[in-house]
Amino acid sequence: MKLTLKIWRQKNAKAKGEIVEYPLDGIEEDMSFLEMLDVLNEGLINKGDLPVSFDHDCREGICGSCSLYINGEAHGPDRGVPTCQLHMRMFKDGDTIYIEPFRAKAFPVIKDLVVDRSAFDRIQHAGGFVSINTSGKPTDANAIPIPKHDADRAFDAATCIGCGACVASCKNSSAMLFVSAKVSQYALLPQGKVEAADRVLNMVAQMDAEGFGNCTNTGACEVECPKGISLENIARMNREYLSASLKG
């Protein structure tokens, strides 16, 4: 495949970035998108140019490290996969592909296509956990009966890998799908119910403090989420939040 890549290049967080065009040949449709970028970077290094920086780690769709806004969509045109599992067969020979970093005030660009997503970590620190005493003889979690329906929904919410595609896709840069998945995965389980009120209040307060926008229910986040996190979680978070606020 022969491609024209238009990639956002930015030296550092303070530099003014720009789109730079790279012609690329010899790409096979079985390659992953990140392997295609590896080929580009090898060529750049061989020419003595700086390679394009981008986030990646496991390359098997579970770590949430990869990002990229590809041809106007977070993680590109495929559905239910992050960028590392996007394959070049989704593109045609001769295509021009725009590659930009995830954009949000709360996700500042560090370099090229790498953005700082530590805002998600701070939201998690604010309440995305259960406090369990592990000393002595803790009760085995498996000994607590949990309705199958609740367990399934909690697990679905827990599949969120925190990649930030929801923020990147949302026209408002809202993080509500991410936060609601984390709120839901605990709120649905008995172990998480104990701290549910504090959790939702603290996580939403941190989300607002980070400068994310507000959800207007366009549903773009759900469509672009590589793990198919449902909007049901946002409705649940809204209920949890209102209930916790009214309880005082």
Binding site: Y69, R103, N172, S174
Partner: peptide, 27 residues
């Protein structure tokens, strides 16, 4: 809210395909 939401993304995408994931009415 619209003003606040716009300010949550100070730099817009050069190529954005909003129609791929949401309705015109919602956006």
């Amino acid at each position: 809210l619209d003003f606040k939401n716009r300010s949550a993304r100070p730099i817009n995408y050069i190529k954005n395909n909003g129609a791929a994931n949401s309705s015109w009415a919602s956006r």
